[in-house]
Structure formats: C-alpha cells, structure tokens
Deep mutational scan, measured.
Amino acid sequence: MEVRTIKVFTTVDNINLHTQVVDMSMTYGQQFGPTYLDGADVTKIKPHNSHEGKTFYVLPNDDTLRVEAFEYYHTTDPSFLGRYMSALNHTKKWKYPQVNGLTSIKWADNNCYLATALLTLQQIELKFNPPALQDAYYRARAGEAANFCALILAYCNKTVGELGDVRETMSYLFQHANLDSCKRVLNVVCKTCGQQQTTLKGVEAVMYMGTLSYEQFKKGVQIPCTCGKQATKYLVQQESPFVMMSAPPAQYELKHGTFTCASEYTGNYQCGHYKHITSKETLYCIDGALLTKSSEYKGPITDVFYKENSYTTTIK
C-alpha cells in the first residue's frame, strides 16, 4: 500500500517557510505537534488534498525554529505562539472599519479597549522592536488589523473576551517599542525636605499616572512627601515624541487643539466601556464603527496623549 502524501510549508514567522512532505494517514499533531492554519487549530486533523502548498504555523520545537521565533517575536515564552494563534482565530472574524481616516474595530468580545489602543497607536510616533509587531502594525494602518490585535493580546497575556485596560495595554506595548531616546527629568520640591531631581528613561519617561493635564504637570502637581507634608512635583525636561497622561476616570474637559487623542471610560472596574476622542479640525468621538463630532467635550476621561518633541522648564 502506497503512502499518500502532500507537500506543505511549516513556519513560526510566515517569513521562513520549511518544506514538509506530510503523510495523509496521520494527523498534523502526530507529525508536527500543535499546528495552526489561519489561526485555526488543526492539530487533530489529517492532511487533505486542499492543504497542498498551504502554510501551517507550528510551535518552535527545534533550534532553527526557536531562533526564527525569537528573532521575529522577541520572546522565548513557549506558550506565546499558541496564544497568538488562538487569538487570531477570533480577531480574523472582527470587522476593521476605516473611521475618520483611522483603522478602528467594530465592537465584539469586549474589544473596546483594543480599538482605543489601536486608534491611539496610529496617532503617536512609535516604532516597535519585534519585527512581528512592526509588520502587523503597518498592515493594521492599511486596514488589516487582525494579526496586530492578536499579537497585542498575546504580548499582554490576554484572551479574547476578557476586559482590558488601555493604560495597561499601552504599557505592555511600550515595553516592546523603541523608547531608548526618551528621557524625563522631574523635580520634587518640599518646604521641609528641599528639592530632589529624578531622571527617568524609556517607558517611565512617557507615562504618568495622577493627572490628565500635561500643562498642569509642567506647572506642578501636589504629591505627598515622605515627611508627610505636601510637596510639588513638576516637569523639568521632556525628550520624547509623545507623552501619555493618565488618571482614574473623572469628568474632564478636553479643549480642541490642546491634545492629540484621549480615552474615555464609562462604567466601573468590573464592567465598563471605552471610547476614543481625537482632536482634528474639530473633536471626534470614535466608538467602534461609530463616529460623532463636537466642538467641545466633557466626560469621564482616563488617558490623554500629547505630541511632544523637546521641553525644558522655565521655572527657576
């Protein structure tokens, strides 16, 4: 009895394709271990004539594949690729409408935090270190965002349907971005203890939790000093293409032309909904596939993004 075979390709990165001759009487799992086709788990399936010449994702289970996976995804987590594939199996079914010149995501599976993050990423200057993220990001900007969303979920250790947080998501993504040249110098002034300067680099240099107003941050924000008295913390120097200011959701007025974009969060910790506000020729609110415009805006804002380049204080 002759062994019926077909020729397929296996890959971990969709760049390096490895030619395989597979036995049609055995499952993919018996031949390769966990195997995925377009995100779908085909591990328990036997090869079919229609699979001839198709590319299958496999887990990096030998040295060659491990090197290829690390170079593309910059992670050695053995569960990463499987999590990416199972997320992709959902995100490829989502709709990605162009809204006001940006790629958004039609609401499904509690994905409003991903839509808000995706919209924000198209408006701030950011370059990702893992080629996987950078490639998928370019495709997302062009309207094909399924891979990018699935990668975000995998890097953030999230599953489809789980509630997510924009600030946490951005923080994970910033860790995989090139923020080497970003720098922030802060000064804390206390009447009792004097003053202390701190220099922050990388992710810490672009994120701040405690106030939404970048102007206020430049002037000074009140913080408790270690001595128990009130101290003032203010920005001395900022070198970065953008800054992200966050605070627990509270009524906040966004003035046209003073910011790049913002995240609105309605609801409580267990259950809520994100919308995205962007400042173009007027203010726009993007909620999944829905767009509304207004000249002014007041609502429960939790993150505001500002364009920056270089700032030095005039406070002496």
Rank of each mutant, 00 (worst) to 15 (best):
G82V: 13
K218D: 01
L59T: 15
D63E: 15
E204K: 10
T199V: 14
F56S: 04
M245L: 08
K275I: 06
D287V: 00
Y73C: 04
L151H: 03
N157E: 13
T226K: 13
T91N: 04
C285R: 06
E168D: 07
H74A: 07
W94E: 01
K233V: 14
L102P: 03
C271E: 15
F80V: 04
L290T: 10
T10E: 07
A136I: 03
T5M: 11
K93I: 07
C271G: 12
P47L: 04
Q98C: 09
H176K: 09
L173T: 02
D38E: 14
P248W: 09
N16S: 08
C227G: 01
Q196I: 10
S104Q: 05
G194W: 02
G82E: 12
L126H: 03
Y234F: 13
K275D: 00
L65D: 08
D303M: 00
T278W: 05
E239W: 07
K92T: 12
A142F: 14
K229N: 13
F148R: 02
N147T: 12
Y306F: 05
Y208R: 03
Y28R: 04
P34H: 12
T282P: 00
Y208L: 06
Q123Y: 03
L179Y: 02
C227Y: 01
G288P: 00
P241M: 06
S25N: 11
T192A: 10
M85F: 15
A231P: 00
Y214W: 09
Y284I: 09
K183S: 13
Y265K: 00
I45P: 04
T312N: 09
S279H: 04
Q230R: 14
G288S: 01
R167K: 06
K44M: 15
L65G: 08
I301R: 00
F56E: 04
G272A: 01
S79G: 14
A247D: 02
Y138K: 15
C225R: 01
E168K: 07
D135P: 02
T312K: 14
Y84M: 06
F242I: 01
D109W: 03
Q122C: 06
Y172K: 14
T10S: 12
A142E: 14
G53L: 12
T278S: 10
L81I: 14
T103Q: 05
R139Y: 11
C227R: 01
E308S: 09
G299N: 00
E71C: 10
P249F: 02
F32T: 15
T266A: 13
P47W: 04
G164F: 02
N100T: 09
N268A: 10
R141I: 09
L81G: 07
Y57H: 10
L291A: 11
L88D: 04
V203N: 07
V188H: 10
H256A: 14
A154N: 02
Q122A: 03
Q197V: 14
P131Q: 07
I124N: 04
P97D: 05
Y28M: 08
F9L: 13
G257T: 05
K95M: 15
Y297M: 04
F148A: 04
Y96I: 03
T192F: 11
S295H: 15
A150K: 02
Y28W: 07
A289N: 13
Y284T: 08
F56K: 04
T11V: 06
I152K: 02
L212V: 14
Q134F: 07
A231T: 03
K307T: 07
Q134N: 12
T159S: 15
F259I: 01
Y137V: 07
V3F: 12
R4C: 13
V221Y: 08
H18T: 13
Q222Y: 09
Y84W: 04
S295R: 11
L126G: 03
E162L: 03
R184G: 10
V42W: 12
E162D: 15
S240K: 01
Y57W: 11
C156W: 02
V160H: 05
F174E: 02
H90Y: 15
R4D: 08
I315S: 14
G257K: 06
N129A: 09
Y265A: 00
M170P: 03
T27V: 09
D287P: 02
L291M: 07
C190A: 00
P78S: 12
Y72N: 14
A146M: 07
N16E: 08
F217A: 09
L114R: 00
P60T: 09
Q237D: 06
I315D: 15
H18S: 09
P249V: 06
G228M: 03
